[in-house]
Design a protein around this nucleic acid. Structure first.
Length: 383
DNA sequence: CTGTTCAGTTGTGGCATTCCGTTTT
DNA sequence: AAAAACGGAATGCCACAACTGAACA
């Protein structure tokens, strides 16, 4: 783990606070793992989350530039910072913010999405929004270390800073970060930008530096071509893993794998999907929410299988796969109360009001001629 | 690789209808 | 206790510009 000098300041001149990695306590933490409740640098993140299949499913996000203790979910390209929902609310609802000459409420902000698995440097470049920075350039551009490259400490954020937003709301989004004092919802975040680029905040330089270190140490990097071969980021549904390894005794028989494949993010797995305790406590409400939003949470489980899944992964499997399931249970028992309260608070602050995606369509709809409330054909008006 | 074309899909608001829980008879 | 009346919420419908993505030059 390389020791990391702290970045002096971010592009807007405000000094960066020290936020050491919870794992090595040396490097600057750039990511936040909600399942582990930990701040990690890129190197430690890879180390921690490549240890077994379950850990690769933890959802990680950029660390909030505001509070340094929550996963960022909003990127403000105007201020070039990433914020958690609470910090975003605070920043962009202040009437007298001096972060920029423009009104904070009009800042160009976009939702951020976390990532799972054990992505290669190539994937990280894409995930973190450095798609334009070639891997070769990452390795060869020594001047980048002084921040003199286009991704260095310059003030300009070109148009590649447009984040590809998630097309769904994961269950993570139902959980409010615990480190803040309130649970305000982020307001006014423009949905669904088209460009497939990402965002990085105040710690951009440190991000580049750690990516470079990662690329140097990555054995899969082909230095000649700058091609970084993906390491094992293959997704292996845990259901299948458990059943294939334990098909002799689990009683969870299956011949149709497609019926039982489960895609889910780590938090869903840790907090909800695999923990009957929490589900029971939260009650049918949460459970039905999760099922109703199956497509949003990427949880694809036939309803009739849910019970089977739960029972097949309880006591028996924890004995067969102690490394996997004991870890899950520890997390659940420690964080159950927190998760519950977070969920309840989050639910209270849900926004049910209608959200207009395209103002132009609204304007047109309002101005259209109607017959009994329905849009009328233009040619009918001539009659 | 870039730009253009084109077919298919999406989203927009007001009214009517349906559904369902509550109150009244 | 049962039926009727009431009222609020949810849903569907409509046309078409805007959007999306594939195919092609």
């Amino acid at each position: 783990m390389p020791d990391s000098p702290l970045p002096a300041e971010h592009s807007h001149g405000s000094p960066l606070r020290r936020r050491p990695c919870d794992f090595c306590n040396k490097s600057t933490a750039l990511l936040y793992c909600r399942a582990d409740n930990a701040k990690l640098c890129l190197s430690c993140d890879r180390e921690v989350h490549s240890t077994n299949q379950l850990f690769t499913k933890h959802t990680r996000s950029l660390l909030c530039d505001g509070c340094d203790s929550s996963p960022a979910s909003i990127f403000c390209s105007t201020d070039a910072v990433v914020h958690c929902q609470n910090c975003d609310w605070e920043t962009h609802n202040k009437s007298n913010s001096n972060s920029n000459s423009s009104s904070p409420a009009t800042h160009d902000r976009r939702p951020l999405e976390g990532f799972t698995g054990c992505p290669s440097v190539t994937d990280l470049l894409s995930i973190l929004g450095f798609e334009d920075l070639s891997k070769k350039g990452l390795l060869l551009c020594g001047s980048c270390e002084e921040g003199s490259d286009s991704y260095g400490s310059g003030d300009k954020f070109p148009d590649y800073l447009v984040w590809d937003t998630p097309s769904f709301v994961s269950l993570d989004d139902l959980i409010v970060s615990s480190g803040s004092e309130h649970n305000y919802q982020a307001m006014g975040v423009p949905p669904l930008p088209k460009n497939r680029n990402a965002a990085f905040g105040a710690y951009k330089d440190e991000l580049v530096r750690q990516l470079r270190e990662l690329a140097k140490s990555d054995p899969n990097v082909d230095g000649d071509e700058g091609i970084i071969k993906p390491i094992n980021d293959e997704f292996q549904p845990i259901i299948n893993m458990a059943t294939t390894q334990n098909n002799r005794s689990s009683g969870f028989e299956h011949n149709k794998l497609e019926e039982q494949q489960v895609a889910y993010s780590s938090n869903e797995a840790n907090t909800f999907q695999w923990c009957p305790d929490v589900c029971d406590a939260v009650g049918q409400d949460l459970y039905s929410d999760q099922l109703h939003n199956a497509t949003e949470t990427q949880c694809i489980v036939p309803v009739e299988k849910i019970d089977t899944v739960h029972h097949s992964i309880t006591a028996e499997n924890t004995q067969v796969f102690p490394n996997i399931f004991v870890g899950v249970r520890e997390i659940n028992s420690q964080e159950r109360e927190t998760a519950l309260s977070r969920y309840k608070e989050k639910k209270k602050s849900r926004r049910y009001d209608k959200h207009i995606r395209y103002e132009s369509r609204k304007v047109r709809a309002e101005s259209r001629i109607r017959i009994r409330g329905r849009f009328a054909k233009m040619d009918r008006l001539d009659v």
